[in-house]
Write a protein that binds this DNA or RNA. Structure first.
Lengths: 113, 113
DNA sequence: GTCGATAGTACGGCCGCCGTTATATACCGT
DNA sequence: ACGGTATATAACGGCGGCCGTACTATCGAC
């Protein structure tokens, strides 16, 4: 699962949102780092709906325009939890590996082996 | 940065490795979850070398066969550290969002609001 | 002698993300 | 009155990165 997809699931975890709401939520959640493009969002939403990780919660007609709310399904929540663990494991593993690295501070002569 | 790429950098963080060594290291690091395909590995290695995140450490001829060792560069280590922080932030954000979710245990009637 | 592990190269395919455009309404500032 | 921004969704082409597979080649084990 890629980052945009992960963040979309994350955005939907707290409460159902419509498309544009997801864009704003992901923006906030990522501290402004990730700005979802419509192409990314609706494509991902379609795929996630196909996989059953999100479902259409309801459709509202606001001022003549359709507003479709998406909800994180129970399988979606399970998948998200699994992904969180995966990210944590990878982060920890990478940190341990970096700790084994000889370089930076050591090359200053602070440690000679 | 995608998962295979991240794990390749992680594998190279501790010490230089040749291609097949990376495949084995990623296998171990991920607890057997991620098995790198040659196409994935050598493609990623080429891209990472272009970006300067890894460099060719040395080339050895072992029993007539070339063995090319790759090393994580300092920019590569910096990029990996940044990515670790990114993963952690996302994992934490997702967990917080899931905590806001009404469902599962609550729907058992243990909490009625 | 053949199988599996080691080791690397090459190529086609495809999924998922990106950029962009189109469409439409509403509100704000100038 | 007009342009810019925000809200809201759909549809298109492009492409980066991963995957599967096949090919080559050596070595040890059975």
């Amino acid at each position: 699962m890629q980052e945009p997809t992960f963040l979309i699931l994350t955005a939907l975890a707290a409460q159902p949102l419509h498309g544009y709401g997801v864009i704003r939520a992901v923006d906030e959640l990522s501290g402004g780092e990730v700005k979802l493009r419509p192409g990314t969002l609706y494509g991902a939403l379609d795929r996630l709906a196909e996989q059953g990780l999100v479902t259409v919660d309801r459709e509202e007609a606001v001022e003549g325009r359709l507003r479709r709310y998406y909800r994180l399904s129970d399988p979606g929540a399970t998948a998200l939890k699994a992904q969180i663990e995966r990210l944590r494991r990878h982060a920890t593993a990478a940190e341990i590996q970096l700790g084994k690295r000889l370089g930076d501070a050591l090359s200053f002569g602070l440690v000679t082996r």
